[in-house]
């Protein structure tokens, strides 16, 4: 905050749904005074060529993220649960459609 008045536009993360049937996907960020302006800027910045049919904007400081340093303790417990995968189960080849 070295120059007053400069920093009052917060950062927003932008998510775009490319077409019906797809999830919104994170495309980048932008600065705007408020949510309405963020939506308009996102429209101009990230969908100049029909890249989207719907936009979400979220204040960046409202995003809670997992820490890369805790990646192991956070994600690895799912690694040893092989029974969560369909290939864990042996079914005779003679049984159809399974």
């Amino acid at each position: 905050m070295s120059e007053p008045g400069r920093h009052e536009w917060p950062l927003f993360e932008v998510f775009v749904r490319a077409k019906r049937g797809l999830n919104h996907v994170h495309v980048g960020s932008l600065r705007a005074a408020d949510h309405d302006m963020a939506l308009h800027h996102a429209r101009d910045l990230y969908t100049r060529r029909n890249e989207g049919v719907s936009i979400w904007v979220v204040r960046s400081d409202d995003v809670v993220a997992s820490a890369p340093a805790e990646k192991e303790s956070f994600f690895e417990p799912s690694g040893d649960k092989i029974y969560r995968h369909p290939t864990h189960y042996t079914i005779p080849g003679s049984v159809p459609h399974i």
């Binding site: 008045g5 400069r6 009052e8 536009w9 005074a33 408020d34 302006m37």
Partner: peptide, 10 residues
């Protein structure tokens, strides 16, 4: 413009 928009938002 930046200042006015920020003031309006506030």
């Amino acid at each position: 413009v930046r200042e006015a928009a920020a003031a309006h938002a506030a």
